[in-house]
Simulated assay, not measured.
Amino acid sequence: MTQHRPDTLSHAPLGRESAYPEHYDAGLLYPIPRAVNRAPLGIEEGALPFVGEDEWHAFEVSWLNAHGKPIVAVARFRLPAQSPHLIESKSWKLYLNGFNQTRFESRQAVVDTLLRDLAHAAGAPVAVELLDVDDAALAVTRLPGECLDDLDIEVTDYTPRAEHLAVGEEIVEETLHSHLLKSNCPVTGQPDWGSVLIRYRGPKLDREGLLRYLIGYRQHQDFHEHCVEHIFTDLMARARPERLLVLARYVRRGGLDISPWRATPGERPPEPLRLSRQ
C-alpha cells in the first residue's frame, strides 16, 4: 500500500505526472491538515467558529461486480468541517480509478470500503452515497435568493479585501448569490470556477462592496474549502450577523466537484442543489 506524509504538499500527486492505478489502493488518498490554512484566519482547531461539510460528487465511479461486469455510479461524499484533514482532490481521483478493475461482492461492499478509507484519511466519520447516473437527486437546480452579478460596479482589485465589506443599520434576513467566484489551485495555479451563496440575518450588507469582495478571490490561491472559510470569517468579523451560511458550488474538474459550506450552528444549506455548471 502506498504511504504518504499528511503534513506537506511537497509529496502530493497534485501538479505531478501520475500513472493511473490498475488496482485498488487506499494509500493513494492524500490527507492535508486543515489547521495549516486555518491558523492565518485565527481559527483554532477544537474551537471552530462554524459548522459545515465538504460535499463532493464523483462522476467517474466504476467497479466490477462478482462476475466481472462493470457497474457505474455517481458518488456523493460528505466530510465534516471538524475533521482534522481534507483530502487532496487528485489523490481522490487516483484512488477512485483503482476501483475500475477491482471486483466487489456487492454495492454495499463498495460503500463500506469508501466509508472506511475516507474516514481514515479525513480523521473523522464521513457519509457516502452511491447514486444511479439518472437519479433525480442529480437534477439541475438554481441557487435561491437574489443574484449580485448584474450590479454595474468598477473593479480594480483582484485580491480578497475584507474592507470592501460594509453594513448599514437596518437588520435584514436575506439570501444573496453570485456566479463570479473564481480562485486558483494553490499548487498548479489552475482556475477553479464556482458560485457562492450567502444567507444571513444581521446588519444589511452593502451589495456592491460584497460583490467586489467576492470578485477579489479571482487571483487568490487556496483550496475550495479554505476559500469558503475565509469568506465566512471575514463576514463574521466585519458584519457580525446573528446567523450566517456561506456555501460555494465549484465547477467539476477531473470528474469531481466540491461544494463546501460553513455556517453558524443551527444553519444548513438548502437541498438539493446542483447547478448547470457542475
Results as ranks from 00 to 15, higher is better:
165 L>N: 02
8 T>M: 10
35 A>S: 11
209 G>K: 00
189 G>P: 01
91 S>C: 02
63 W>R: 09
272 P>M: 13
256 L>S: 01
175 T>Q: 09
197 L>P: 03
223 F>T: 02
254 G>V: 11
185 C>N: 07
239 A>L: 06
177 H>D: 05
31 P>G: 08
117 D>W: 05
71 I>P: 09
28 L>D: 07
184 N>A: 00
135 D>I: 08
232 F>K: 00
136 A>C: 09
263 A>T: 09
135 D>H: 11
75 A>T: 04
189 G>C: 07
227 C>I: 01
8 T>R: 12
142 R>I: 07
136 A>H: 11
243 R>C: 11
205 L>H: 01
241 P>K: 04
23 H>W: 04
40 P>E: 09
191 P>D: 11
260 P>C: 13
15 G>I: 06
252 R>I: 12
148 L>W: 03
258 I>K: 10
142 R>V: 13
31 P>S: 04
97 N>V: 08
13 P>F: 11
94 L>G: 06
107 R>G: 02
32 I>F: 04
254 G>T: 11
96 L>V: 03
23 H>G: 03
174 E>I: 12
174 E>F: 09
110 V>E: 02
226 H>Y: 10
104 F>L: 11
70 P>E: 00
143 L>M: 01
218 R>N: 03
84 P>Y: 14
49 P>M: 11
264 T>R: 12
236 M>T: 11
267 E>M: 14
5 R>A: 15
174 E>L: 14
204 K>E: 14
65 N>G: 00
86 L>Q: 04
10 S>A: 15
180 L>C: 12
232 F>V: 01
258 I>T: 04
19 A>V: 14
17 E>M: 08
82 Q>S: 11
237 A>P: 10
254 G>Q: 13
130 L>A: 08
261 W>E: 02
20 Y>W: 15
52 G>I: 03
232 F>L: 02
248 A>F: 00
230 H>R: 05
227 C>A: 09
259 S>V: 07
189 G>S: 07
215 I>E: 01
230 H>Y: 07
92 W>S: 14
122 A>R: 04
128 V>A: 07
137 A>I: 15
